[in-house]
């Protein structure tokens, strides 16, 4: 009887069950879509006509020389540039199909959904536990005793729990640089983002810490979509599914990481990934 029942579940039914279990069902396949995005500051153009779609649950590396607009692109995606003096933009960025600048869009909600990790670890001057739950508190996601649960869960998630469980109320600045960056990651993860923007997240870390942070990034997909700005070409190759190369404010190349590194279409890309220009 059992076997009969089991056989009666058709592929179509199975697909529909799986579909219903998928937390991202009915959402666009591309979590972030930039359309002809141009950004400038006080008349100085920094990004020109960038169009790109980032599939949900993937890791995209952003490479390119200093001043090519990588960080500006990244910081535009969670509207960190909005308040910079002289910020001007054309084109649009869609998050789950809705413009991040649409009037109905709540800026704070956009930033909660699109988290960010910075080049230098920047824990707040409060206890380790308070750091993890800082965003959770601000958004009123949890409170009281729940905060302790959130803190433990996120610290476990980034593999920091055992190192800090006895000094949750201690200062975050006594942690090593790598641990501080993991703490910042836990803080960013705690508010439940869909996209994580990483601005050279390991450039201030030693190789071992870098490895720890990188291997953690890989566990975050497909639940999250990651964008990593990096100057480390090895890191881009190790980590990413797709790679974008910025050159002089333009998106020179975008494709799968294997293609960009092995069969670059653009001559500038070829020179850059071969280490001929830096």
């Amino acid at each position: 009887m059992d076997e009969v029942t089991r056989r009666q579940v058709s592929d179509a039914q199975l697909a529909s069950v799986l579909h219903n279990l998928d937390p991202d069902r009915d959402r666009p396949a591309d979590v972030i879509v930039a359309e002809h995005l141009s950004v400038g500051f006080a008349g100085q153009s920094v990004l020109r006509d960038v169009s790109v779609a980032l599939p949900r649950g993937t890791v995209t590396a952003i490479i390119g020389p200093t001043g090519s607009g990588k960080s500006t692109f990244l910081r535009t995606l969670n509207r960190m540039n909005d308040r910079v003096r002289g910020f001007e933009r054309q084109g649009d960025v869609h998050l789950d199909g809705e413009s991040i600048w649409s009037p109905g869009q709540d800026l704070l909600a956009v930033r909660r959904r699109v988290g960010m990790l910075f080049q230098r670890p920047n824990p707040f001057p409060m206890s380790i536990r308070d750091n993890v739950v800082a965003g959770v508190r601000a958004h009123g996601i949890a409170r009281g005793k729940q905060l302790d649960v959130v803190a433990e869960m996120r610290l476990r998630e980034v593999g920091l729990w055992d190192a800090v469980k006895d000094r949750l109320h201690g200062s975050p600045y006594r942690l090593s640089g790598g641990q501080q960056q993991l703490l910042c990651l836990a803080r960013a993860l705690a508010v439940g983002p869909e996209v994580l923007l990483l601005d050279e997240p390991t450039s201030a870390l030693d190789p071992l810490s870098t490895e720890a942070v990188e291997s953690l990034f890989r566990t975050l997909t497909p639940a999250l979509t990651l964008l990593v700005v990096t100057h480390n070409l090895g890191q881009a190759r190790r980590l990413s599914d797709a790679t974008m190369l910025f050159y002089d404010g333009q998106l020179a190349e975008h494709g799968s990481t294997a293609q960009v590194f092995e069969q670059p279409r653009d001559a500038r890309t070829a020179r850059y990934v071969q280490g001929l220009v830096g």
């Binding site: 910075f118 920047n122 965003g135 960013a188 508010v191």
Partner: peptide, 11 residues
């Protein structure tokens, strides 16, 4: 970096 960190969390 403190201000940016807070901003990036959507505080």
């Amino acid at each position: 970096s403190y201000r940016e960190g807070a901003e990036a969390l959507g505080m």
